[in-house]
Design a protein around this nucleic acid. Structure first.
Lengths: 109, 109
DNA sequence: ATAATTACTTTGACAGATAGAGTAATATGC
DNA sequence: GCATATTACTCTATCTGTCAAAGTAATTAT
């Protein structure tokens, strides 16, 4: 399992990325992250819902109550125009971050 | 300037990397980071010295007082065997982190 | 029935980053 | 000679993000 300090700062992007593909609900996103990373990273529930709150407050996502299947009522999230712009921005930032960290992680042996 | 949440988790590695090249003191490391990143990242003083404390506590570095030139007395840091091993480990971890985040940052448009 | 699974929420604690203020010595400009 | 800048480190208080833990609630499987 990858350390959370390392993923920290990318959680918003990861979640936005999954929501831009289609509207999704929390539990689904949690499972999808585990699936795509082969369990190398698992988001904790409390963290996930905290991120949702932040994103919604910043109006990068919006939510609506969906159907109540398989137990709990699902709360779906959809990305806003602002959210799409933000995601695009973070993708650029990620490229730059890689460059910078590689400066220190590469070379030497 | 790159967000600190994104560098968080790599600070220890960055500092160890600079110290493995040669013994260095705090102020020097701070300047060196700004220099190598073209000011795209600057470590804050308080952060730097907090990292030193953590690293020393974990015995990844050791320190000694150096000559008192240009003002304040310099405190030099040197990497330990444990620190070298740790650094090697984090380099592997960084490769994996890139893979994982790229999973979400690539594709799509 | 009851256990497991799906699904979301809230609270409190903790770790790491950092602003801000302080200490202290040397170097530079006038 | 004196003020200011620069070098160099330290400490405290605060903020933010992560997450353990516990709870609520409905559905599905045994």
């Amino acid at each position: 399992m990858i350390r959370s300090d390392i993923i920290r700062g990318h959680l918003e992007s990861i979640i936005l990325r999954l929501i831009i593909e289609k509207d999704r609900y929390g539990y689904e996103i949690s499972k999808e992250i585990s699936l795509r990373t082969n369990n190398r990273f698992q988001i904790k529930e409390a963290t996930l819902y905290a991120v949702f709150q932040r994103l919604e407050k910043k109006e990068l996502i919006a939510s609506y109550i969906g159907d109540i299947s398989h137990g709990g009522r699902r709360k779906y999230y959809t990305i806003t125009t602002l959210g799409k712009a933000y995601l695009k921005e973070t993708r650029k930032e990620w490229q730059e971050t890689k460059e910078i960290i590689d400066l220190f992680m590469e070379g030497l042996e």
